[in-house]
Design a protein around this nucleic acid. Structure first.
Lengths: 150, 150
DNA sequence: TACTATTATTTTAACATTAAACTATTTCCT
DNA sequence: AGGAAATAGTTTAATGTTAAAATAATAGTA
């Protein structure tokens, strides 16, 4: 077991699962995003580009919801993408509170080029599990995530 | 499924498990550490105190290995704990390259007081799963984490 | 219409995080 | 012994991250 805590059986079991979950998420994140360094992209920047690529233009609030990040964080990440010309901010003329973030041509070219590497890295990272185990992992994580997000 | 990617069955399955794993880890981390704000402790600070509490004094290198963080990061986290008088740095007289980090009395009192809350929060976060499911989650995460850490 | 509440974004302060360069110390090897 | 290599820690620069306060714009309501 991964915990040194002396507690009830329930506690030790939960702590063990917790530690393993955290370590798996850490290791997989590091491994999956290793290839991003080549393009000088951070994980957050990649996440934003990917969301815009698959969902189309989004206002910053919605981008934050997708990435589970705060408003202020999105402001900074979009700033840095904008500096590199990978996205464009467009103020919504209908409701001037909204800033809609669009992929630029350069940004689209980049995410199109590197997304296949991302998929390959994810497949590789999970290849130690059989297909049915991957599905079971997804099922358990969905339950845990849902409860914790309440 | 949690992905919009159009790909092979293997790809979609792996991406789905990956997304669920990440979201679960994120949500559980946020939930489990919610109580730390009361004590104005960060997650990293809590992790360092916990490691010192359960493993005894550690040099910064070893602390970094436990927390999976870089040297420079540990320097800062220990700095901030030291400022609050929760830990003490002691240069190893045998090998003056090493700085051994000790819990102070104040630090020990704090971690002893809040650790039970941490355990309770972890148990709560995982309570949506049956005991056997928690064990299965731990098993799958261990496999995935091990592969990714290679 | 005018006031209030809500919503989206930005800003700020504090801490986290990494990579890379740097310092100090020790170990290893010839 | 002496110099090279390895190891522990610090520093720096860039980015991320949050919470909280501040701005700006819109919606709702008396």
């Amino acid at each position: 077991m991964g915990t040194r805590h002396r507690g009830t059986e329930d506690e030790v079991r939960a702590l063990d699962a917790y530690i393993k979950l955290m370590r798996a998420a850490n290791s997989v994140t590091a491994r999956v995003h290793r290839h991003l360094a080549e393009e000088r992209l951070t994980i957050s920047q990649f996440g934003a580009l990917e969301a815009l690529y698959h969902l189309g233009p989004l206002c910053q609030k919605d981008l934050g919801k997708k990435l589970l990040k705060t408003d202020g964080n999105i402001t900074l990440v979009v700033d840095n993408l904008e500096k590199r010309g990978l996205v464009e901010r467009r103020r919504d003329p209908e409701d001037r509170r909204y800033v809609v973030v669009h992929l630029s041509e350069k940004g689209r070219e980049l995410i199109q080029r590197i997304f296949p590497r991302h998929v390959a890295a994810v497949v590789e990272a999970l290849s130690a599990l059989a297909p049915s185990e991957q599905q079971e992992l997804a099922r358990l994580c969905r339950i845990v995530g849902k409860r914790a997000a309440e």
